[in-house]
Amino acid sequence: MITPALRGDIETLVRSVAGSGFRLRELTPVSGGDINTSLRVTGEDHSYFLKLRPSAGSAMFTAEADGLAALAQCPAIRVPGVLAVGQVADQAALLLEWLDLRPLAGDDVARRAGAALAALHRHEGPHYGWPRDNFIGPTPQANAPHDSWALFFVQRRLQPQLALAASQGHGGRLQQLGERIAERANALFLDYRPRPSLLHGDLWSGNAGIVDGPDGPRLALFDPAVHYGDREADLAMTELFGGFPLAFYAAYREAWPLDVDYERRKPLYNLYHVLNHLNLFGRGYLAQAERMAERLAMELSR
Rank of each mutant, 00 (worst) to 15 (best):
P4H: 13
P4E: 11
A5E: 07
D9N: 09
V14S: 11
R15N: 00
S16E: 03
S16F: 04
A18Y: 06
A18F: 06
S20W: 05
S20D: 14
R23F: 13
L24V: 06
L24C: 07
E26K: 08
L27H: 05
S31L: 10
G32P: 03
L39M: 03
L39T: 03
V41H: 11
V41T: 11
K51Q: 08
S55A: 14
A56V: 13
F61M: 03
A63K: 07
E64F: 02
D66H: 15
Q73G: 02
P75H: 11
I77G: 15
I77F: 13
P80I: 02
L83T: 00
A84W: 00
Q91T: 08
A92Y: 07
L95H: 02
E97H: 03
E97S: 01
W98T: 05
L99H: 05
L101S: 09
P103H: 04
D108M: 10
A115Q: 06
A118E: 13
E124D: 05
E124Y: 11
E124A: 14
G125V: 08
P126W: 06
Y128K: 04
G129H: 05
W130E: 04
W130P: 00
P131F: 02
P131M: 00
F135V: 04
P138Y: 04
S148Y: 00
A150P: 04
R157H: 10
L158D: 05
Q161N: 09
A163E: 15
Q168Y: 12
L174K: 14
Q176M: 13
Q176W: 10
Q176S: 09
G178H: 12
R180M: 13
F189P: 02
L190I: 14
D191V: 12
D202T: 01
L203Q: 03
W204Q: 12
S205W: 06
G206P: 04
V211A: 08
V211K: 15
G213F: 02
P217F: 03
P224G: 13
Y228P: 05
Y228R: 12
E232I: 07
T238M: 12
E239M: 14
E239K: 15
L240P: 03
L246M: 13
Y252P: 05
W256P: 00
D261L: 03
R264L: 09
R265D: 01
K266I: 06
N270E: 09
N279I: 03
E290M: 04
A297C: 02
M298D: 14
E299T: 07
S301L: 12
R302M: 12
